[in-house]
Design a protein around this nucleic acid. Sequence first.
DNA 1: CTATACACGTAGCGCTTGCTACATTATTGT
DNA 2: ACAATAATGTAGCAAGCGCTACGTGTATAG
Lengths: 183, 183
Amino acid sequence: MKKAETRRAAIVEKLADHVLEHGLESASLRPLAKAAGTSDRMLLYYFDDKSAIVTATLQQIAARMMGEMSRRSAPAPESCEKLLVRLEAMLDEEIFWPYMRLWLEIAARAARGDGFYRNLGEALGRGFLEWGKMQLDSKSEQQRKAEAAYLLQTIEGMLFLKAIGLDDVNAVALGPDSPRKAR
Amino acid sequence: MKKAETRRAAIVEKLADHVLEHGLESASLRPLAKAAGTSDRMLLYYFDDKSAIVTATLQQIAARMMGEMSRRSAPAPESCEKLLVRLEAMLDEEIFWPYMRLWLEIAARAARGDGFYRNLGEALGRGFLEWGKMQLDSKSEQQRKAEAAYLLQTIEGMLFLKAIGLDDVNAVALGPDSPRKAR
DNA sequence: CTATACACGTAGCGCTTGCTACATTATTGT
DNA sequence: ACAATAATGTAGCAAGCGCTACGTGTATAG
């Protein structure tokens, strides 16, 4: 009873580690089971089917990510530019990269029309918007919304370019000659 | 001799259709062969192995995409803002969506460290930068570079948000209250 | 002490994956 | 016409996929 839940939770922890390291593509039952120190048979004993396993694992990962994010919240709201600088720095922290490349995988599956990943992606995206709004010291609610949206769009663009090895382009796009800085 | 090349080219056309519609994930030999009206056996007769098939197919797709892009080049260079509007419109053309979601898949694989997709992604990204530079009427070379980078980063951000169903957020991020528009 | 529910191993099913061995038919160049 | 070569069909392999049937040991409740 209680033991089952404990064991289940321990398994999910290890599954989260594995998925963060190897992605969804290699998330098939036997490798997952091995990573969790059990068998495919037992994974399907603790969970209904594979999709339940993936759901629980991604929930765990989302929780971890949320923890990392809130640990990096500013003590007080700040300006959009300053927040962007902090987000930029986060993207370069190696701790975030596993989450980020997984995030890309989720987006790719959502783009293919998979409803599960589409809903998940939308929820996580809107979650970020809420987090962003709380960090911002915008003048109006309209502006708060617009700035949060701007930040989300921008860091996703940065994520994408980083993924394909164009970090230098990111630097230029945020540099002094960019329209972002032109005022 | 010539017949072989012709047949090969015809096959690649159909493979490109299939990959554009169903993505790389479902690009396994037997489905591909079926889409091309042949057998897995014959695919491996015309190509060395699966990776050669994928390479040829993606080359064909890149060529098609390039055609669509150049067909939409402005007659004369234009400002960064105007070009962004045109790119925004392209992203909403249904004809581009198959390319865009495939583009996301490539980025996701590149982020996972797959060298093949990393190189491909970087090459395509830099190709876009060149295209963008040619469309821009920037004042200096520095600015041309920065604006092209800005455009690439921005449309990738838009692509990402569109993928997870946040088109509304895109609209807000480009709207009047966004820092992008702040004088 | 025994009956029952839980926990887990072993083995396998039917299917798909990339790829190959072998044989056969078409199409050539001479 | 014939020999060589190109093109294609049939079958199958070993591995991996999600999932299940069936057994067995073990803990616990009556």
